[in-house]
Amino acid sequence: MSDSATVSERENGLQRFRAGLWRENPILIQALGMCPTLAVSNTAINALTMSLATASVLLASAIVISTLRGIIPPQVRLACFVLVIATFVTLTDMLIEAFALDLHRALGAFLPLIVVNCMILSRIEIMASRQPASVAALDALGMGGGFMIGLITLGSLREVLGRGTLLDARVMPADFEPWQVMQLPGGGFFTLAALVIGFYLFDRRWRRQEVGA
């Protein structure tokens, strides 16, 4: 009996992992957790650091909270969640400051803002506070991965079109005129809108093929 329980648990976890990457992608479908992250999505390296930091905070707090879920009283659960998340965000902030000072300066006040990322809190509330640690961890990995995919695509697009470079290496021809607008906040909104539409079209075609086959 315990065997069947672990099998279904594992399957459930894997399913959650895949859902986070694609069907329930936090950025492109759920539109969650964009607030502090969009602001620093103007270059690929910023987007990479920011989404990596967010994903690791999510993973760490999901595991901790899922382990503690029996002890946390439901009345004050939100406060407890936020405390755990804030602890990990402070840790991440200090780590980045210690190992990559330039990046830390570029991201500025936006790193501590990960703490109020709605994506993290919603995953904790929906999954980690109800599921065993293994499922919660896989869910967090999937969601974090989906978040990274979305944000890095966004950051790369904005950097390539807005500066003609990718990770500071020139990728566009020398006579390419950078689209200033892509580096402005407005460009971030436009790029995200284009990504959302593209994702929708792609997903629809995919679903049709599935039905057809």
Partner: peptide, 18 residues
């Protein structure tokens, strides 16, 4: 159809931002 909901709102936000 494809721009319903979030996409159109984001485009609007982009225009406002500009």
């Amino acid at each position: 159809d494809m721009a319903q909901g979030m996409a159109i709102t984001l485009v609007l936000a982009g225009i406002l931002s500009l």
